[in-house]
Design a protein around this nucleic acid. Structure first.
Lengths: 135, 135
DNA sequence: CCATATCGTTGGTGTCGCCAACGATATGGA
DNA sequence: TCCATATCGTTGGCGACACCAACGATATGG
């Protein structure tokens, strides 16, 4: 059922992301920054449904790749303001394209109408369980 | 999309399985044994799409719980023949029930017809990518 | 008889999701 | 004003899942 499909999706996405030097966490952070703008790490964790500690790691790695910037928040010195860079936006676009590709591959056996139906149904499920419908 | 839904499914299933003292690997092994009968560990790995090394661990744990039995195969001394026990069958039934419950919970926002549609579509996807339609 | 393959096992890697604890900082109420 | 409380970033750890490499033991085909 869902789990089975998820296995394939994960494997396909994983392979492609490794080739792009990224992980799921990286994509989520970049997507959240692009969509909602700069944020503190704790805020990113809430947006991406990630643990704060995992945000730390992801942001550090993204910073090392030049895809985000960390800056101390002058208004609240507990916070780091994380901002996506130009290179980060480009990386996000790249990852978005590979995700589209993978989705095409995954849903290959379905017609366009069936895909729409599937996505709509899954969207309802995710929404009901309190999820933001990202990707 | 699929990944989002999978997260919820995993979380729900995980919670219930932990309460039952089981893991996903345990369920897969028990289900394969119940459906196709006794098998060597390598054969189980193929049926469940699990790595041989992970089968070793799962079978060892299931053996410790009395849910399966390991016996040297006299016809091929490389093999262990794994057999499900009565207790194992009961455990499998328990896990099946919790899976049904979780699926109900997960697909709560969908009507009966929509559920059928969703399962059918996912079944097509899994089948296309070379999966045995278990659960 | 020997190369090759399979089997069970051990040990390791990476991703994801989560939790506990810490020091630093903000904030609200006494 | 001071102090309890909460939040933030960070470190370190754990479990589940999926995978890989290598080993000795055993089967099997040429």
């Amino acid at each position: 059922m869902v789990a089975q499909t998820a296995v394939h999706a994960r494997r396909l996405v994983g392979e492609e992301f490794i080739a792009a030097g990224a992980r799921g966490y990286h994509y989520r952070v970049l997507a959240a920054l692009q969509e909602f703008g700069p944020a503190s790490q704790a805020e990113l964790g809430r947006r991406c449904r990630m643990d704060r500690s995992d945000v730390v790691v992801a942001v550090t790695e993204l910073e090392g790749q030049g895809f985000v910037e960390r800056a101390a928040d002058p208004a609240d010195r507990r916070r780091n303001t994380v901002t996506i860079t130009r290179a980060g936006t480009q990386q996000l676009r790249r990852l978005d394209r590979t995700l589209d590709k993978v989705q095409d591959e995954l849903l290959a056996p379905l017609s366009a109408t069936e895909r729409q139906t599937l996505v709509a149904l899954l969207g309802m499920v995710v929404k009901h369980h309190g999820g933001a419908p990202t990707s």
